[in-house]
Design a protein around this nucleic acid. Structure first.
Lengths: 136, 136
DNA sequence: GTAGATGCAAAGTATTTGCGACAAG
DNA sequence: CTTGTCGCAAATACTTTGCATCTAC
């Protein structure tokens, strides 16, 4: 688990510092799309000397290297998650803030078709569903 | 055209001030999802005494009243567009920044199905496709 | 040894807000 | 009239950056 981000850094030529290892570890262990403040607070528990500027610099670096994904969900702050092989989208509970990850091949295919229809190659996409729990 | 936002304000009990009328007019006539700075600059040409704080307050008010939609496309700034009856999503050209609006009923249906599968009622959603023009 | 990373605090952006003056209903 | 809005500038929230120091390779 933790290894994976570190390995990706090596394969992408990203220098592995002590701080980056810790941030990588925290991101690997987080399954809840934390924002920078939250990451900083988790990282600080492991090594309190790491500054928030380093957290900002590191998530940006990881994002540019394709190691983590950045999301701009409602709420203003950017949130991050480790990028895994399997792509997924998000279903967000607007009451609780809970985030469910899902995959739907059919939607993926249709997106490509739409882009194609307008003469575009799809490079990236963002699909967020906002919902409330049904009262069964 | 311009009437529509004003009518919506009245039907939602939003007080119609001179500034709001101007901002509504500018938004109605904009087909390019402007950010607040851009709106402010367009509004200023009509009445230079309107402050940017009023533009911020007004777009927020309009958004909460369901009159305009707010988007957080890549680039940090929030961008706005008049909300029309017909829902649509966005295909964004990452080279030029051009935005194409599209509708795909099938994707809409599938989204509802996904939410349903997890026990949610879909309240809102966001679908953005990022692409580059094909060299035919 | 050297290029690049870090910490700190200061500087940027984007957006919000307190307050006295003012306008809509 | 009275409540809510406006303009202004100050405040806030999030993120970036300059610089001297330090560290991975």
């Amino acid at each position: 688990m933790t290894e994976s981000i570190e390995k990706k850094c090596i394969s992408k030529g990203v220098k592995l510092t002590e701080q980056r290892k810790i941030i990588a570890k925290v991101m690997s262990e987080s399954n809840d799309h934390p924002d920078v403040d939250e990451l900083y607070s988790r990282v600080s528990k492991i090594d309190s000397r790491i500054s928030i500027a380093t957290v900002y610099r590191t998530v940006k670096l990881f994002e540019e290297s394709g190691i983590v994904a950045k999301h701009d969900f409602k709420g203003g702050k950017a949130r991050y998650e480790e990028l895994s092989e399997s792509h997924h989208d998000h279903l967000i509970d607007i009451k609780t803030g809970e985030i469910i990850e899902f995959v739907d091949e059919e939607i993926e295919k249709l997106q490509k078709k739409v882009a194609d229809k307008y003469g575009y190659d799809l490079v990236d996409h963002k699909l967020e569903l906002y919902g409330v729990k049904k009262n069964k």
